[in-house]
Amino acid sequence: MTTNGPRPEVVRYTAFSDTPDGGNPAGVVLDATALDDSDMLAVAAELGYSESAFLTPPPEGLEGQEGRTYSVRYFSPKAEVPFCGHATVAAAVALAERIGPGKLVFSTRAGVVPVEVTQESGTIRVTLTSVEPHIEEIADADLTEALAALDWPAADLDPAFPPRIAFAGARHLVLAAATRARLADLAYDFARLEALMHRLDLTTVQLVWRETATVFHVRDPFPVGGVVEDPATGAAAAAFGAYVREFGLVPEDAVLTLHQGEDLGRPGRLTVTLRAGDPRVRVGGAGMRIR
């Protein structure tokens, strides 16, 4: 830490679960005004979570209800990321416990993210609205390298889901497994996949398997963040929502359920909502304090 003042208060929350042993844990610093970049990275590294959120006052000119608009930055143990869904949920739950449910506005490096917090029967739920997404093709050589790093034969992919890079605040390579067994068997070359992801500016690889028309199981290798696997990934869920809409794999109006973390023993549930005529994707889930 380079600051000479007291250590920042860090609170810990899990996102996309209503139990403390599920979902994806994140650290939240509700007042990071005294921290510089190296401080925030040091806090994130000490916590060891896939990401942590750092809040400061909003930039000048950003509209929003006073006291409910913030600048937010996200750090993994190894680097800053432009946007993180689960740390957004964690930060919103932390704020709701202090200032009450309602609407929030987060100014992130990816853009402005509206957030809505509700509470029912003691459970706090958060829904974020992504920045405008887009989909990119991936070069054949890069796809071949990704599959080699994962040790996934191309024949194990679901042909209904073409490999693509999807963005809704951060970039994710979407690969669909043909079977649940393929998704469950994840033992990849960490350094090799990390190198490819750095070259393609990817945050995670979004591995998916379709159980029903609207229910998916997902996993997210995250070597660029210094983490083997992310337990619940809101940014990737938003990107995936944009992806399935792009290819007409779900109706224009759809509510999808993504199950993530089961293979890690930290089950989480993410809700992805698509609305006809609105390019932005909504991702929601429960959250709670874990310490």
Rank of each mutant, 00 (worst) to 15 (best):
A177L: 10
V208K: 05
L193C: 02
I138A: 01
L200C: 07
A242G: 15
W152S: 04
V205R: 00
P251F: 06
E145I: 09
A236Q: 03
P153I: 04
V228A: 13
M197C: 06
L274I: 11
A146M: 02
V208W: 04
I138T: 05
H172D: 11
G226K: 06
A236N: 03
P221Q: 11
P251D: 06
L249I: 10
D142T: 01
P223M: 06
R180Q: 15
A254W: 09
Q260F: 03
A170G: 13
T214L: 14
P223F: 03
A181S: 15
V218H: 03
Q206S: 13
G268Q: 09
E194D: 12
P223A: 07
I138C: 02
A154Q: 12
R180D: 14
E137T: 14
A177R: 02
I138D: 02
F247Q: 07
G268S: 10
P223V: 03
F161E: 02
L157D: 11
R275D: 09
D142P: 00
A238E: 02
A148H: 13
T203H: 12
G226R: 05
T204L: 03
A176D: 07
H217W: 10
A141Y: 07
T257A: 11
L143T: 01
Y188F: 15
A232H: 02
V224C: 05
V227K: 09
I138Y: 02
D140Q: 13
L264G: 02
D230T: 01
D263C: 07
E246L: 08
D140E: 14
M197S: 04
L274K: 03
R171E: 06
A178V: 14
L193I: 01
H198A: 13
L264K: 01
R199D: 13
G241V: 02
A177E: 09
V272K: 00
R219Q: 09
A236R: 00
A235Y: 03
V215Q: 13
P153S: 03
P221K: 07
G241H: 00
L202T: 05
L256T: 02
G241Y: 00
